[in-house]
């Protein structure tokens, strides 16, 4: 599963406590002229008060895997989306789904709308790790963040269509089908917003100047490949059935699996990068 992080979730607090203990014990056993953390102007106090630029980032990054679990529960299982209903089905069958699975659809789509925000939180965590790698400007981390932010909307708004249909299952079958279709078109066809996110990520870490890169280069290249593969969705509007339709082998099973694995892989490697950044920060002397 996911690699256990070296520092705990409250790593920040532990580090400060740890440093405080170290400082206090040094103060006790040291000669009288050693600086004390209790005197505001000393180096020790500066260390204790130094801003931690990586605070909260671990939590943000963990929201990626958390969201994946929630998506499986709300979108896939409760939403009856393994796979979604074929675009070739008559309206009556789509209507039947909303009439028979009303409650699970309502819970599932509510869950999706509420938890979609975690994608933005995850993206912000990634942006913070990217900031440690970019050196000329913060353009790429910003592009990643905007890409993550708009992908968040893609996770939040299509479920609104499906929730609307589940909210009024007695409506005309044709209306229910159109709501289902509209949700799916928005869900699948806004893929370039996610392409932006993963491409910015990849370019940033491919240009990482470190001898051992923060993110291994193959992971960045994998991210670029994911972006290119998403272009397969371009064929979706042209095929109501078959492997390139919304429920087909390529545009559902392959593409959605790739998205899942991409989120997981990016989460694992950014968490590792974060652990390394925090280790490096602890080893840095604090300059006045």
């Amino acid at each position: 599963m996911v690699a256990r992080p070296i520092l705990s979730e409250t790593g920040d607090k532990d580090r400060k406590t740890e440093m405080g203990i170290i400082m206090a014990s040094r103060a006790r056993s040291a000669p009288v002229d050693r600086p004390s953390p209790n005197i505001p102007s000393t180096d020790a106090a500066r260390v204790a008060m130094a801003p931690d630029s990586l605070r909260y980032v671990r939590f943000c990054l963990w929201m990626g895997p958390v969201l994946l679990v929630l998506l499986v529960v709300f979108f896939a299982v409760l939403g009856h989306n393994i796979p979604p209903y074929s675009a070739a089905l008559p309206a009556e069958e789509i209507a039947a789904h909303f009439r028979q699975h009303t409650t699970s659809a309502r819970i599932g789509m509510t869950g999706m709308m509420v938890s979609g925000v975690l994608y933005l939180v995850w993206g912000m965590g990634i942006a913070k790790v990217m900031e440690a790698a970019e050196r000329d400007n913060d353009l790429l981390s910003r592009l990643q963040l905007w890409g993550a932010g708009f992908t968040t909307l893609v996770l939040v708004f299509p479920p609104a269509f499906w929730l609307t249909a589940a909210f009024r299952p007695e409506a005309d079958a044709a209306i229910l089908m159109m709501l289902y279709d509209a949700g799916w078109i928005m869900f699948d066809m806004a893929f370039s917003l996610t392409m932006l996110q993963v491409t910015a990520f990849a370019i940033c870490f491919l240009n990482d100047w470190r001898a051992v890169p923060l993110i291994p280069k193959p992971v960045s290249w994998f991210a670029i490949w994911v972006a290119v593969v998403f272009m397969g969705f371009c064929f979706l509007p042209f095929f109501p059935d078959g492997p390139f339709s919304r429920s087909g082998f390529f545009n559902y099973w392959v593409e959605f699996s790739i998205f899942f694995w991409a989120m997981l892989i990016l989460s694992i490697f950014t968490l590792r990068a974060l652990a390394r950044l925090q280790r490096e920060a602890m080893e840095q002397p604090v300059h006045a």
Binding site: L206, K217, P218, W221, F222, W225, V229, V254
Partner: peptide, 29 residues
């Protein structure tokens, strides 16, 4: 864009990861 793919086995251009993944995708096709 010359990077180390594996420490032990020498360096290959990183784009090979993309190429391998894409070729595998076509094999699915």
């Amino acid at each position: 864009m010359r990077e180390m793919a594996q420490h032990r086995s020498g360096s290959v251009p990183g784009i090979l990861t993309f190429i391998a993944a894409d070729t595998a995708n076509f094999i699915l096709f």
